[in-house]
C-alpha cells in the first residue's frame, strides 16, 4: 500500500513526530511504500539542523534525515508554515535577505500543494497530530 504521512506537531513537545517516525519505519519494514512525509504547523521545526538535544535523548531530526537517505522518503516542509517559524533553506534565506539558514539534509521546503498531491496519489493519508 502507498501511504502518505502528515506530521502536524513539533518535536520534543509532542509525541506526534516520534509516533510518525515509528509508523513510517514499521510501514517500510512491512513492505509498504511511504513516498512522502509532509510537515505542517509546528511539525516544520523537526527540520532544523541546529537542534542539539542532550546526548542521551533521541535526535529526532537526524533520525528523519537518516530515514530519508536510506529509504528515499521525500521529507517536505511547508513553506508558509516554515517561514512563520524561522525555518529557511539556503535559497529562501538569500531571497529573504537573512544571514543564516537552518534546513537539515534530507528535507526540502515546498508548498502546500505537495500535501494535496500526496493525498491524491497515495492509498491512505495518515495524520500524526493533536
Amino acid at each position: 500500500m502507498k501511504i502518505g504521512v502528515l506530521v502536524s506537531e513539533g518535536p520534543y513537545t509532542h509525541q506526534a513526530v516520534d509516533s510518525a517516525y515509528k509508523f513510517v519505519t514499521a510501514a517500510l519494514a512491512a513492505g509498504h511504500e511511504v513516498p512522502r512525509v509532509f510537515f505542517y504547523h509546528d511539525g516544520v521545526n523537526v527540520a532544523s539542523r541546529l537542534s542539539v538535544p542532550p546526548q542521551d535523548e533521541r535526535h529526532i531530526q537526524q533520525n528523519w534525515t537518516a530515514l530519508a537517505k536510506e529509504h528515499g522518503v521525500d521529507l517536505v516542509v511547508c513553506i508558509a508554515a516554515a517561514q512563520r517559524r524561522g525555518m529557511l533553506d539556503a535559497n529562501e534565506a538569500e531571497r529573504q535577505g537573512k544571514d543564516a539558514n537552518n534546513l537539515a539534509e534530507g528535507f526540502r521546503i515546498s508548498g502546500l500543494g505537495q500535501l494535496i498531491e500526496m493525498g491524491i496519489q497515495t492509498d491512505r493519508l495518515v495524520t500524526f497530530g493533536d
Binding site: H41, A81, L112, G113, I116
Partner: peptide
Amino acid sequence: TIYALESLEVVLIGAAFEQ
C-alpha cells in the same frame, strides 16, 4: 492556536487541484 488559520491556507491552495 494557529490550526484554524493554517487549515484555511490548505483549503485555498488545495482548491487549485480540482478535487
